[in-house]
Simulated assay, not measured.
Amino acid sequence: MASRSAVRLRTTTPDDNAFIVEMARHACIIEDWPLPAPDDDEVLEILPPPGVPPIIAENERRPPVGAVWTHHSNPPLRCDAAGAPLPELCIGVAPGWRGGGVGGLLLDALFADLSTGVDGIGTNVHV
């Protein structure tokens, strides 16, 4: 397990597409269940939509170790008071990097990015 001080954040590039799919696979499983296929409907539904660049966490050697973004489910998980769908959180951290603060670092960065234009966010958490 690595510390969050060994991690830096950046936005995605086209070279990150396969990693984003991998993090979506990890984000949509229940612990100890097998990972779904990259083309599974549940994985495809939570991929970031065009114009929503994920935030990537990478270690000092530059391989990505986690990612966070928002997406909209159809039907929406939650709506605001006016009935507009709330964006939903999607976060994934590579198994060897969990428990060291990478997820918290990613969430802090996402919430800072969303703070000026989003009043709420939905989460769908597997226990």
Rank of each mutant, 00 (worst) to 15 (best):
S3M: 12
V7C: 12
V7N: 09
R8F: 04
L9P: 03
L9N: 03
T12R: 09
T12H: 05
T13E: 08
T13L: 06
P14Q: 08
D15N: 04
D16E: 11
N17P: 00
A18C: 03
F19Y: 13
I20F: 11
V21E: 11
V21D: 06
M23W: 02
A27F: 07
I30D: 11
E31P: 04
D32T: 13
D32P: 00
P34N: 07
P36G: 08
P36R: 13
P36N: 11
A37T: 14
P38Y: 07
P38D: 04
P38Q: 02
P38M: 08
D39P: 01
D39A: 09
D40H: 12
V43A: 11
L44A: 15
L44F: 01
E45K: 13
E45N: 11
I46Y: 02
P48E: 11
P48H: 11
P49L: 14
P50A: 12
P54I: 02
I55M: 10
I56K: 06
I56Q: 01
E60T: 13
R61A: 15
P64R: 05
P64L: 06
V65M: 02
G66R: 05
W69H: 13
W69Y: 06
W69V: 09
T70V: 15
T70M: 06
T70E: 08
H71S: 12
S73M: 14
N74P: 01
P75T: 10
L77H: 08
D80K: 04
G83D: 01
P85F: 04
P85G: 06
L86Q: 09
P87M: 05
L89Q: 09
L89H: 08
C90H: 08
C90K: 04
I91D: 00
P95L: 08
W97E: 06
G99Q: 07
G101Q: 07
G101S: 03
G103M: 02
G103P: 05
L106Q: 00
L107S: 01
L107W: 05
D108R: 11
A109V: 04
S115G: 12
V118M: 06
G122R: 07
G122V: 03
T123Q: 07
T123I: 10
N124C: 14
N124M: 13
N124D: 14
V127T: 10
